[in-house]
Design a protein around this nucleic acid. Structure first.
Lengths: 151, 151
DNA sequence: TTCATTGCAAAATATTTGCACTAAC
DNA sequence: GTTAGTGCAAATATTTTGCAATGAA
């Protein structure tokens, strides 16, 4: 999988969308958008806060959370809960996630859309009408697969 | 899908496994196992605590959590995180979960094992070696599908 | 009797909220 | 100048931990 846009292109697109929605482009939002754009590491609010603290010593958690919530409402980031904390993902295309047993990394994995046959099967057998799907795989990421010794 | 065992049969099996593992059958464990066996509602620790409080006014949260953890270690219950709280599931067979957009219910849905072809495709394209899979579907449960008016 | 288990309280973790102040527009 | 957005502190929600007392085997 290759990135369609560079990180800065994506940041510009995200900022444009915020502006278009009539939202203010504060330095904090600038920084959070730039930190997140093109970052495939799925950081938590905590991690983003710590990453930005040097540049914005007075920025609060509430700002990080509220900015991430704003971005999520605008459809510019996705969020996934893995363990206790929510992680944020600038990749809003349909995809799944893999959590590495060895290093804990969260990686993006391709998703094929669920077939109508599968959706219809579930509805017929259980009555549940599927609208969306989230998958988490557990296993070993590419890097850790190469090091069989690792726990 | 039909239950293979009645709730009390499942409770007996769970208690037998605890005993076999050399663990003590305290009244609290008895009650938690019986509350959980055959319960497909995926209760949280909070919900179990409140359900059992009338019968065990002095029982603490720590006991509920530690018992659920014990059951999980013994492989007698599964746990899934949906939103802030962890939910517990006496169904340890491979299955997926559906969360109803309308009523919030968490229902069990059948799972087909991932094919080797799919696993191999992911490994080849991304390097990630899949060991296990968790799926959450969003949509409408059977009951809520019948009431289109509901939010 | 023994030691796993319980109950209680405090701590830890992640997130949300209220409100006065600030700054983007 | 307006008012959305920020910072701070306190509140909330969930889970974990330490430790003395209890009770199942």
């Amino acid at each position: 999988m290759e990135a369609t846009h560079s990180a800065s292109e994506q940041a510009q697109a995200m900022l444009g969308q915020l502006k278009r929605a009539g939202l203010r482009l504060t330095p904090q939002r600038l920084a959070i958008v730039e930190a997140l754009a093109g970052d495939a590491s799925h950081p938590t609010a905590q991690e983003l806060f710590e990453r930005l603290r040097p540049a914005f010593p007075t920025m609060s958690f509430a700002t990080v959370y509220s900015t991430l919530d704003t971005l999520a409402v605008q459809g510019l980031v996705g969020s996934l809960r893995l363990g206790a904390a929510v992680r944020f993902d600038p990749n809003v295309a349909a995809h799944h996630h893999g959590v590495c047993d060895a290093c804990g990394a969260v990686v993006d994995l391709p998703a094929l859309p669920l077939s109508h046959v599968e959706i219809e099967d579930v509805r017929r057998t259980s009555g549940f009408a599927i609208r969306a799907e989230e998958r988490t795989y557990r296993g070993r990421c590419g890097l850790c697969s190469e090091e069989p010794g690792k726990t």
